[in-house]
Design a protein around this nucleic acid. Structure first.
Lengths: 154, 154
DNA sequence: CAAAAATACTTCAAGCCTAAAATTTTGAGC
DNA sequence: GCTCAAAATTTTAGGCTTGAAGTATTTTTG
């Protein structure tokens, strides 16, 4: 590729991608702020707790701490603290894995399942409202682009 | 709208929007994790500090604390702590606004300008690499969709 | 089988983040 | 000038987050 090409084509695209990234960040931050507020006022809960409960709701038999932190892309030590508080509140319980005394299985309590169902219904409504401008065709396209980013990046 | 319609059309779209949101979150979290690591290893810095410096670099005459927190969409008290550390490191300085003793102007020091220039160049390269799968046509489309979300939501 | 390496998790220190309360200063209305 | 609401920022308490160090257990390997 020529030097002229680099100046005329690569540079602008690189700046555009940067602009796109800043928009992505701003938009997700905006929606996260809204959700945080809604969870706080409506359920006296937080986003991280909701995320953990959502993951546990999908796997009722429970998940290991390491699986949780990997799926949520947050550190190991972080999950420990969030689970501590959820256990404290009675929404989650720790169960020993038999055959491996190092591991812990974490699962929702009946109270946790009930609470999550309420939160999830509202959550879906909030998201649908915030993203209402994106139509069915765009959703698919958008998801494709996003998954390409994560695939490529390994 | 009929009940049948609601079941056949609204429900699925609402689920799809939810899925889209989860993908957005996962993708931005992934890229943020990469950037955090790169800033830490390459510059002994952090994402929040970089964000603040980026904002200050765009407005060399300085910004008020309140403008900073509004632009970055983070709380007032949060910015105080980040600026404290940047001042400590010598990259930022606080200047009194004359005519209003309540307000503080914050601006980059020469050392801060220099440091930021280095970081910004690398940062643009990292973003361009992570988003390399998104071509010029898609970028524009993507940005349009994102801005619609924030517009609509007020 | 004993030593070493790997795995699962927790603890720790430091930084980021929020909402709410506190502090200081400003600006109106009297 | 005085009073008081509004504005700009900091402080505070509590929760989230990370990377690194620590503990216990399991697996590998010599």
């Amino acid at each position: 590729m020529s030097v002229a090409n680099e100046k005329l084509e690569d540079q602008p695209v690189s700046k555009q991608r940067l602009r796109l990234w800043l928009q992505m960040l701003k938009t997700t931050r905006f929606i996260e702020n809204e959700l945080r507020e809604e969870l706080r006022l409506g359920f006296q809960s937080t986003l991280p707790r909701f995320d953990v409960m959502a993951m546990l709701d999908r796997t009722r038999e429970g998940l290991r701490m390491s699986q949780l932190s990997k799926q949520l892309m947050v550190s190991n030590g972080n999950v420990t603290g969030i689970i501590d508080r959820l256990v404290q509140e009675g929404f989650v319980m720790r169960v020993q894995v038999k055959g491996d005394k190092r591991a812990t299985l974490v699962r929702l309590t009946p109270k946790g399942i009930e609470k999550f169902a309420e939160m999830a219904a509202e959550h879906e409504r909030w998201i649908n409202e915030h993203l209402k401008e994106i139509d069915e065709t765009e959703i698919g396209h958008f998801i494709d682009i996003l998954s390409k980013v994560r695939e490529e990046d390994h």
